[in-house]
Nucleic acid binder design. Structure first.
Lengths: 206, 206
DNA sequence: TCCATGGCTGTATGTTCATACAGTATCGCG
DNA sequence: CGCGATACTGTATGAACATACAGCCATGGA
C-alpha cells in the first residue's frame, strides 16, 4: 500500500513493470528489465525486485517465469459490478422491477459515492444546466431521504423525474436546471412526494 | 474476431487462458495448460495454441515464455474491463505513459462505441455546451485520424486539449463548445496538429 | 477408400529464466 | 570511522519453457 518509501530508481522499475505488463500481456523477466535500463547484469534487476518485494510493492512467485505481480496499485477494491439500466419506468411499478430493466451495464458501483444502485436513462433536457442531457444515464443511489440542494430521483403522481431538491421547512420545491421549466412546489404534509434515490453520477455514450 | 468457429475444446482452452491470466497476472505455460486439462504431454497444449493462433483467437510471441496474448477485446461474460484514468498529461509524454495514469476505473471498455481505451480528466469548461464539465472523465478511443464534426482529443504545442474538429480542406479548426472560447485555426500543412483520440463518452462522479 | 483435422501420448533439444554467489563503488548515519 | 543500504558488474547453474518430431486414434468429408 504505502510504497512511498521507494527510491526513485525503484519507482522507475515498478513503473516499467506496470507499463510492460500492460503492453505485452505479461510481466517482464529479469533480463528484459536489465535490457530496458541498460544493466549489464540481470542480477541488478533481481535485486531491485527483491527490494520491491521487501517494501510490499510487488509479489513474486518463486521459480515461476514472469512471476511478478504488482500489488494493489491497480484496482481499488475490485468491484466486478454490473448495474441494471432502467429505461422507462412503468406507472405503478417499483423502479427496480424486472420489467423496467433494459439491460445490464458493466460499471463498478463503487466508482460513485455513495455507491450507485442502478442507472436511469434520462429523458428530456430539464437538467441540461448541470450537464445532464437527454439520453444520459444517471447513476442513482437508492435512498428515501435527501437533503436540500441534492439532485434526486423522485416520483410524483406515479411519474419518475430527476430534479434538484430544495427544502424549506414543510415546503419543498423540485427545481429543473433549465430556465424553461418551472419549479414544482409540493406540500410535504400531503405526502405526494416519494424520493427514490440520489443522483451520484452520469454516464454518457456517444 | 469471429472465433465462433472454435471447437468446444479450443474454447475451453481459450477460457482457461483468459481466466488464468486474470488470476495469476500472466498467461499460462504449455505445461500449466496441460496440467489443468490432464494432458500427459505439453505438446497437446502446444497444438491447441497453434489452432487458436490459426483461428485468430490468440497471438504468440515466438521463443518468449508465457508469450500468449488473447486477441479478443470485449471480455466475454459482460466484461470486467478496467480503464486507465489519465489525470494530467506531462508535456512531451505519451498520454498512456505510466506517470500520467492516476488510477484505474472499473468500466467495460465496450460500453462505448468505438471502444474506449482510457478516461481523460477534463479540465476547464470549454466544452460545457455539450454537457462536458470541469472534472468530468472523457472516455477516449485512440485514433490518429478524425472526421469533421467529431469531438477529438488533440495535442497542440505539447498540450492536450478536447475540442470539436472542423475540417475544411487544408484548413482545420478546433472549436470549443462554449462561446467564451475562440476557435483555434490550424494549417495542416505545417503539421502542428496531432490527434490523439476520439471522445466516445463521458463519466461524471458527484 | 484416402486424406485432412482434431486431439492426444511420448521424447527430445536448446533457449529462456530465476536465482545464487562473489565482487566493486557510493552515500548517509550513528 | 565502520556499517548497512543502494546500485550495480560478472559468472554460473539448474529448472522452467517453447517447440520440433514421431506416432496413435477417431471423425467426417471427397
Amino acid at each position: 500500500m504505502d510504497h512511498d518509501e521507494l527510491t526513485p530508481r525503484q519507482r522507475q522499475i515498478l513503473d516499467f513493470i506496470v507499463e510492460r505488463t500492460r503492453a505485452s500481456g505479461a510481466p517482464p523477466t529479469r533480463v528484459e528489465i536489465a535490457a530496458a535500463f541498460g544493466f549489464r547484469s540481470a542480477n541488478a534487476a533481481e535485486e531491485h525486485l527483491r527490494a520491491l518485494v521487501r517494501k510490499g510493492a510487488i509479489e513474486m512467485a518463486p521459480g515461476r517465469s514472469r512471476g511478478i505481480r504488482v500489488v494493489s496499485v491497480a484496482t481499488p477494491a475490485g468491484g466486478t459490478g454490473v448495474l441494471p439500466l432502467i429505461g422507462q419506468v412503468a406507472a405503478g411499478s417499483p423502479i427496480l422491477a424486472v420489467e423496467n430493466i433494459e439491460s445490464e451495464v458493466a460499471i463498478d458501483a463503487a466508482l460513485f459515492q455513495p455507491r450507485a444502485d442502478y442507472l436511469l436513462r434520462v429523458r428530456g433536457d430539464s437538467m441540461s444546466g448541470i450537464g445532464v442531457l437527454d439520453g444520459d444515464f444517471l447513476a442513482v443511489h437508492r435512498s428515501a431521504t435527501a437533503e436540500s440542494g441534492q439532485i434526486v430521483v423522485a416520483r410524483i403522481d406515479d411519474e419518475v423525474t430527476v430534479k434538484r431538491l430544495q427544502r424549506d421547512g414543510e415546503r419543498v420545491r423540485l427545481c429543473a436546471e433549465n430556465p424553461a421549466y418551472a419549479p414544482i412546489e409540493i406540500d410535504l404534509s400531503r405526502g405526494e412526494l416519494a424520493i427514490e434515490g440520489l443522483a451520484v453520477g452520469v454516464v454518457r455514450r456517444w
